[in-house]
């Protein structure tokens, strides 16, 4: 999600920044130096994955997969997506400096929520596709909803655009659910140790 500079109002930017700093603080506390390579590789992988365009209907959209990162990493999603957003800005010229906090919160906060909702259910589950799909769907839906709220609260003039954001997220939710489900199903077969009884975070 990329809201550009110049759109959001100061209070919304401030809330976004506040949430982002809080999330980053919690997330970075969980990143011991031994985990730095893991976090970096996931940042690089998620950056690359968002560049993949997938045909849907007459057009194409790109994967977000904040559900997967959230399921796997919890609060560490904040530093992962911060890195991704910085790379977006540096390499592609997406996003903006002042809206960085809002954009980060839009991506990472749903990921954290999904972690608390589904990670425990996913671990050692016989139905990884189901929980992966739930994670993917809820995360992207929450991202769309938060983006619409951020727009709507910034100015009443943006409410129509906010509605467009919500409507355009509906096909995205279905697609992300299916993609996250498939991805998690594959990962649980190829690398089952990712989904042990104790979630990634608490393991040392």
């Amino acid at each position: 999600m990329h809201v550009v500079d110049g759109v959001l109002s100061a209070p919304v930017l401030a809330i976004g920044g506040f949430v982002a700093v809080g999330g980053l603080t919690v997330g970075l506390k969980q990143v011991t130096s031994e985990k730095i390579p893991q976090v970096a590789m996931l940042s690089a992988a998620s950056f690359l994955i968002t560049l993949i365009h997938i045909p849907i209907g007459p057009s194409s959209i790109h994967m977000v997969l904040n559900g997967i990162i959230g399921l796997l990493m919890g609060w560490v999603a904040f530093p992962i997506f911060l890195t991704g957003l910085l790379l977006d800005a540096i390499f592609l010229g997406f996003g903006g400096l002042l809206s960085l906090g809002v954009n980060l919160s839009l991506m990472a906060l749903p990921g954290v929520a999904v972690h608390y909702l589904f990670a425990a259910r996913l671990n050692q589950s016989q139905r990884p596709f189901l929980w992966g799909a739930c994670g993917g769907a809820v995360a992207i839906a929450a991202t769309g909803l938060l983006a619409a709220l951020a727009l709507g609260y910034s100015s009443t003039a943006f409410i129509p655009a906010a509605k467009v954001v919500i409507v355009s997220h509906i096909p995205l939710v279905a697609l992300e659910a299916f993609l996250c489900g498939s991805a998690i199903a594959l990962m649980s077969r190829v690398k089952p140790e990712l989904f042990l009884a104790t979630p990634q975070l608490e393991r040392d």
Binding site: L42, A45, L48, I49, I52, I54, M63, L65, I68, L72, F178, L179, C180, G181, S182, A183, I184, A185, L186, M187, V190, K191
Partner: peptide, 10 residues
């Protein structure tokens, strides 16, 4: 595509 993304993460 889901498998591709999953494999890349693995």
């Amino acid at each position: 595509y889901g498998y591709l993304a999953g494999m890349l993460i693995v």
